[in-house]
Design a protein around this nucleic acid. Sequence first.
DNA 1: ATGGTTGAGCGTCAA
Length: 269
Amino acid sequence: MTQTLRIATWNINSLRLRMPLLSRLAETLNPDVICLQETKVPDELFPADGPVALGYQHAAYRGMKGYNGVAILSRIPLARLDIAPDWCGKGDCRHVAVTLDVPSGPVEVHDFYVPAGGDVPDPVANDKYAHKLQFVAEATNWFAARPALARTVLVGDLNIAPLEHDVWSHKQLLDVVSHTPPETEGLTAWQATRFVDAMRHFVPDDEKLYTWWSYRNKDWRASNRGRRLDHIWVSPDLKPALRGMTVLQDARDWPQGSDHVPVCVEIAV
DNA sequence: ATGGTTGAGCGTCAA
């Protein structure tokens, strides 16, 4: 009695502005669960009707005014899982977790929005970079301290491109926030606590793979200066259950699109 | 070294 569970993740860069694009994502990939980042909407203004009209009757979200914000929209009943700390003590709405009520048994889902980290890759000169490194370190320690995970999926905009071919030029980006050694080593250590990289399960490490292209490129497709900032990780028991993965690159050309594109994984659970 | 674009919301700040 297994089913194919489709879980998508997308930094939507304002949920209220891009509700029509959420509908397009639902039509195109037909995900059972959609994890969003940068919803930029306080909880009391969360536009719940939109997702419900698209068939996502269950939701868990944590938002604030102007910045950040995460949401998990689901066709499958869920229960909110409030076991994580307030990362870095900032109360800034960067993580929400749920347990999905899948018929074969519960599936745990974590949706993260890791701090972008500003421009200067120096934790002394740049508080945002220091916050980013601290956030990753806290998350690493927290997952490492948990018992071994089962049927768990971690997704989100982690704002770090860990591998050489997760960026358009490894050499040119070594000093650019998102690909500096302290970040890539930190993210690798976090992943190694409990997870398998589900995107790289399908695409070899030596092939370019991106999920984000800057708004500042005139022709993103021609220059193709992308980075893989968005990720899907699964607990090792789900690795044999991975059935497919899609990076919806075409979404970068959707009218008034986000600078990130959706990523979706299919898991037989 | 700089600039390039976008969103929130009305100042600029964050990305």
